[in-house]
Amino acid sequence: SDFTIRIGDRTLHLKNVSEEILKILEELLRRGIDFEELRKIVEELIK
């Protein structure tokens, strides 16, 4: 499924993301992860 994360004025667009990855990202966001850290993790996950 497609997913968009907005943190402040920044946006991260994800396409064809599995439910498992979404759950991980949601947990990281709940813990207050930094946007740049989140972006790096996402890039690793979707390689």
Rank of each mutant, 00 (worst) to 15 (best):
R31Q: 13
I7E: 02
G8D: 03
E26F: 09
E27F: 05
L28K: 09
D9K: 04
L38M: 09
R39Q: 11
E19D: 12
E27D: 13
I24R: 13
L45H: 07
S18N: 09
K15Y: 10
R39F: 12
S18H: 04
K47I: 13
L25N: 00
K40E: 08
S18E: 05
K47D: 10
E36Q: 10
E19W: 07
E43P: 07
I21H: 15
E44N: 14
D9A: 03
L25W: 01
I7K: 01
E26Q: 13
D9F: 00
E19G: 12
R10Y: 15
R30N: 13
K15T: 13
L38Y: 03
T4D: 10
L25V: 15
L38W: 03
H13I: 12
L22D: 02
R10F: 15
S18I: 02
K40T: 14
D9R: 01
L14F: 06
V17H: 01
L22R: 11
I7W: 04
H13N: 07
F35S: 05
R10M: 15
R6Y: 01
L28F: 10
T11K: 05
I5W: 00
E26L: 11
E37K: 09
L12V: 11
R31D: 12
N16W: 04
K40I: 12
I46V: 15
L28P: 03
I5Y: 00
I33W: 05
L28A: 07
R39G: 11
D9I: 01
S18T: 14
F35L: 06
K15Q: 07
F3L: 15
E36D: 15
K47W: 07
R31W: 05
V42F: 06
D2M: 00
R30Y: 07
L25R: 00
R30W: 07
R30A: 14
L12I: 15
F35E: 04
L12W: 02
K40F: 13
E26P: 05
I41L: 11
N16C: 04
I7L: 08
R39I: 15
L12N: 00
E36K: 04
L22I: 15
E43K: 08
E44H: 11
E19N: 13
F3W: 03
I7D: 03
K47V: 13
E36V: 08
R30E: 12
S18D: 08
R10G: 08
L45E: 09
R31I: 12
L38E: 01
L38G: 01
I33M: 11
L28C: 03
R6K: 14
S1V: 14
I41A: 08
R6A: 12
T11A: 06
G8Q: 03
D2A: 00
K15M: 06
G32S: 11
G8S: 02
R39Y: 11
I46G: 14
L28W: 08
I21A: 13
I7C: 07
I41W: 10
R39C: 04
K23G: 12
D9C: 04
E37H: 11
R31A: 12
G8N: 05
K15V: 08
T4Q: 10
F35R: 03
H13C: 12
R10S: 13
G32F: 10
T11I: 13
D2H: 00
K47G: 12
L29M: 11
L14K: 01
L25E: 00
G8H: 02
R39H: 12
I41R: 09
